[in-house]
Amino acid sequence: MNYLDYLTSNSEQILFLTQAHFLVVLIAVGVGSAISVALGLAVSTGEPDPPRFSLDWFAAGVREGGLVFTAALLTVPSLALYALFLPFTGLGVTTAIVVLVIYTLYTVLRNTVAGLTTVDRAVLESARGLGYGRLRRLLTIQLPLAWPVILNGIRVTTLISISIAVVGAVVQGPGLGILLINGISRIGAANSFYQVLTGTLFCLVVAAVFEIFFAIVQRLTIPRGIRV
């Protein structure tokens, strides 16, 4: 049986697992990004160096702490996180998604913070000078201008999540990782190599679909005046 034969005769299973993989990543990245962007907005400060003990000062503290903490989480190997969450969230899709959400946090939070703080000071000052209140400034000036940077963070985290989601099969999470685990446990048996190969390569297919998806989202959501 050559590889094409394998693909055609197992197309239904492969397609199903690819879709599952896509969905798990989509849900996790969606939830994680929503959390990170909301957190990033909540802890954004008007001044770069707020006075001690002011509300902004605490927000800046939460922001820096949050970045350090989520960055540390990113260095924890995925297998360890799956293992640590399994006793609480059980075998299956919940654990797979929770862990992926955790990996999403840092990149999106970092890009949100960076995007919001690198908005041209002159633009913010003139917004203030024209009578924009803080919330209006944040939502109608800073967020749209930071959006390309945020969106890029979401894109990068999506690519990383695709490869991490594979390990989720260890805790019986859905997706292409199932092909890897099946293949390696049956090594030497018929089609075991094809299974592993498919599980690996189809991650790139999922990535390609996401790239197209993001190209469209970019086109639709980045304001015309700042589109490159």
Partner: peptide, 9 residues
């Protein structure tokens, strides 16, 4: 202001 501060979007 000096740099114009127009909203780019």
């Amino acid at each position: 202001i000096q740099q114009g501060g127009l909203f780019p979007h």
